[in-house]
């Protein structure tokens, strides 16, 4: 449940124009007198039944092209400066992640809590090589400030993915218990583990599926949705590309299957 404002707080009388008055001024500028809410616009408020139908179609289309989309995703991601590693077997993925941590001489890495880690025993493999793994979880009894400080001093953040977008080479990360927003942005290296079933064809697919999910969850989008497409960059000085500003300089994509 969202942390809702109490009626008291909402009525605490912030400065500004009351909504009705503000919208009235907009309506006046538009030269209309009618009440705005009466204007019908079907597609701004989605019909869950129709969305279900479209989503089922999309999932079928994606499933039938999964291999092809996986190839496209890997190729596009590489063009967007992800370091792509294809892992046919789980051991390959574990080997890649551990050797990466060793190459970085990382003593600590932080990882989020996603389904993929149930399949892939990253913690054990890393600890075996002497790398401490900090899982993000409130139950671990740490407060936010502590977690944050720890995160700032780790060399690598590992996450799963909710979607991998073939069109753009992006990994989409959604909030859930055990997933800090900061794991994929604070440490200088980010590793994303992607399973074949997470690949979708396009941005349209992501937005269709999330839109449906919004209605399924009774009108909740979740607090955030992040598309990550390659490393952090800037061209703010002389339009010259520099990789690695506030986010990670190095991003790795481990594609399972």
């Amino acid at each position: 449940m969202p942390l809702r404002y109490s009626a008291e707080m909402a009525d605490a009388g912030f400065p500004g124009t009351p909504k009705a008055q503000f919208l009235g001024a907009v309506r006046q500028a538009l030269g209309r007198v009618s009440d705005a809410a009466q204007i019908p616009y079907g597609s701004a408020v989605g019909d869950p039944v129709e969305l279900e139908r479209q989503a089922a179609e999309a999932r079928q289309r994606i499933a039938s092209r999964q291999r092809e989309l996986l190839e496209q995703f890997a190729a596009t991601a590489a063009l967007r400066s992800w370091k792509v590693f294809r892992a046919p077997a789980l051991e390959d993925a574990l080997g890649y992640v551990t050797s990466l941590a060793v190459a970085l001489s990382a003593s600590k890495v932080v990882r989020s809590n996603q389904e993929v880690f149930a399949e892939l025993a990253v913690d054990a493999a890393l600890q075996h090589r002497g790398v401490q793994v900090i899982p993000v979880a409130q139950s671990a009894g740490r407060d936010r400030a502590q977690l944050r400080e720890e995160m700032a001093s780790t060399a690598m953040g590992i996450t799963g993915a909710d979607y991998a977008v073939a069109e753009t080479g992006s990994v989409v990360v959604l909030p859930r218990r055990g997933l800090s927003r900061l794991v994929s942005v604070v440490p200088p290296v980010h590793v994303a583990l992607v399973r074949p079933q997470e690949v979708v064809a396009s941005l349209d697919d992501v937005f269709l599926l999330r839109r449906l999910e919004y209605y399924r969850r009774g009108g909740d989008m979740g607090s955030y949705l992040n598309f990550i497409t390659g490393p952090s960059r800037t061209a703010d000085i002389e339009q010259t590309l520099v990789v690695g500003v506030h986010g990670p300089k190095e991003v790795h994509l481990v594609l399972l299957g």
């Binding site: 992006s170 859930r176 989008m221 607090s223």
Partner: peptide, 30 residues
Amino acid sequence: RLTSYVSMVSGPRRSEDEDGPEQFHLVLVD
């Protein structure tokens, strides 16, 4: 083709989130 990040924020952190802001204010300016 796409920027490194597209961040979509819907309200403050939920109670089950690990982090994120506790308050979200949107100021719409004319």
